[in-house]
Design a protein around this nucleic acid. Structure first.
Lengths: 335, 335
DNA sequence: ATGAAAGCGCTAACAC
DNA sequence: GTGTTAGCGCTTTCAT
């Protein structure tokens, strides 16, 4: 068995309180400090965070619930957050819910039992029932990327309407008129926002929205492959496509490749996320680039402030970040 | 505050032991079972795993220490493992140590304090000092992908020598002689194995190993870009390259793209990992494909067996998995 | 089948 | 500054 504070007390002849005080930054006489440190060394003592957590009612652990770890956007954000959280002494329990509403609820309940101090969640859809019970504990929730109806809590978003608007705007400027959209699932917040931006850009330039040019993918690679094949087949006059997440962008590129449709000669393309991938494509892809690092940082910081911070925080913080465009060579000037 | 078992005891008029027994699959009189379940419902009771963990000396939590979450190979494996572990009631605390030996040690100590029941680790290098203290607890360690000197524990590996041999063999069969290698850091186990396979393939075909054709990258995208630029510049007679991980493969493709070197006309390429990326490239890449899903499954299963299983397990289990080759069009027949 | 009580390792009053 | 002690929420003997 591992050594306990009792062992240290016995070995040093000191009381438990002194040892505890040593670990919690209290004042301990120089002499005793040395004795304690010797004992720690010899016994290989490590604080038992479980016991501490039971007593203090704080586990120094936050739960992270995401739709798909195996998704570069998510992975980058988690990687960034975990770094910051751990450097503040917090562990991150990651739960990948496979874009499954039921698994998402189970994950939150699981984390509730584990008594995490807070939950960071990129929700599967726009409903928030899975968080209701946890919210009753009064512990903080920070949402990433997607707002939720009926849950009021902190939230770090990306300005997706604007992102899509800029992307489609660029295509229009190059004289494209028949622009396909490979959108995401209708129940996903970001998907709706990006679609909104697409429509707005068209309308602002006096181009009619054509339902036949809109395809709802499922944010997966295979979904992107299918979507682009469908769009190309159904719309011989289509000259450009806007793809609204990374996995589908990759899928669209695969689809064009395998159909032998040349880019940008036959189809121009604007994709989403993952700069290295865009650079690796031939020709390099023009893409919307999301500030994953910043999202990670903001999210972790808000969580830490709720956990450790002064109370003078607003009821719920909403942060909205802007995207960038990386200019590749996947857009051809039309006409 | 959340409800406790005491609250349920009070509400049902039963003793603590009965409630506990209910939760642990003991026999409880039908009548009482119903009363308990009603109370749970009304009080929104959820077991406090922290308290349980303190008592049972088992947190139902495993630590996962990896060099880089932001690396598709790692992300896929974690995603698969986490799924299995959670379905068995285990949480996964993920620690990304940024390929930093010091951070890796800190992560393990951190997890020790958190009293995780076991650690899964993809080690940064071939030394294992960071695990020594944890191993003294007698709790299980499962290593992924990389063996370690001086630590004897379970281990799930990929046959990297064979993988590299097959890859280079294919190039030789297409009459390539001047084959560059973009290898990994010398202190990384897999990197050495893949280099070994490269050399073995050359030797077996009577081709001399040329130091100038070997480049040690750092397993990052940018490293791949630099490596390929260097190789191409230094070796005008080089006709093919073998790249030994996904990030560098992407980097090599970017490098060739940006230098305007055509593939496979000027340079043939065999890459590593990530089938979708290989398909998205133009032309599609021929790559070595690792069985990430299987690695995840094997690792999680070994860990679970150590945690829950019968004692009749061998001292340390070593599993070695084979790779596949995905045939793209990035190899040109030479001569 | 159920209840009473001890104790897991720690923190935080409180007393000195 | 340091020691004593109660108790966080649970499991687990040991009686009954």
């Amino acid at each position: 068995m591992a050594a306990t504070m009792k062992d240290i007390a016995r070995r040093t002849g000191l009381g438990l309180a002194t040892i505890s005080s040593y670990f919690n930054g209290g004042n301990v006489r120089e002499k005793n400090r040395i004795k304690i440190e010797e004992a720690i060394e010899e016994l290989h003592y490590e604080v038992n965070e479980v016991a501490r957590g039971l007593k203090t009612n704080a586990t120094k652990t936050v739960g992270v619930v995401i739709p798909e770890l195996n998704n570069v956007f998510c992975a980058e954000i988690i990687s960034g957050m975990e770094d910051i959280l751990r450097s503040h002494g917090y562990a991150a329990i990651v739960c990948d819910c496979r874009t499954d509403k039921k698994l998402e609820k189970e994950a939150v309940d699981f984390l509730t039992r584990k008594r995490v101090d807070g939950i960071i969640n990129m929700p599967v859809d726009m409903t928030g029932a899975h968080l209701n019970e946890f919210q009753k504990t009064g512990k903080p929730i920070v949402l990433i990327d997607r707002m939720i109806q009926g849950i009021s809590c902190d939230c770090v978003l990306v300005d997706n309407v604007n992102a899509a608007e800029k992307a489609v705007g660029m295509l229009v400027e190059q004289q494209h008129q028949k622009i396909g959209l490979i959108g995401g699932p209708d129940e996903v917040f970001t998907a709706r926002q990006r679609m909104l931006g697409y429509m707005k850009a068209l309308k602002d330039h006096g181009i009619a929205v054509d339902e036949k040019l809109i395809c709802h993918g499922d944010y997966t690679i295979q979904g992107g492959v299918q979507a682009v094949e469908e769009l190309v087949k159904e719309n011989p006059d289509m000259t450009a496509v806007f793809v609204t997440n990374y996995e589908m962008t990759m899928g669209a590129v695969i689809g064009l490749n395998e159909m032998g449709v040349s880019m940008p000669e036959e189809i121009s393309l604007v994709g989403f996320d993952n700069l290295p991938f865009a650079r690796a494509c031939r020709p390099a892809l023009t893409i919307v680039s999301q500030p994953t690092e910043k999202i990670a940082r903001e999210t972790a910081q808000i969580m830490l402030e709720r956990l450790e911070g002064r109370e003078e925080l607003p009821d719920h913080i909403v942060r909205k970040l802007q995207t960038d465009i990386f200019m590749g060579k996947s857009i051809r000037r039309q006409g």
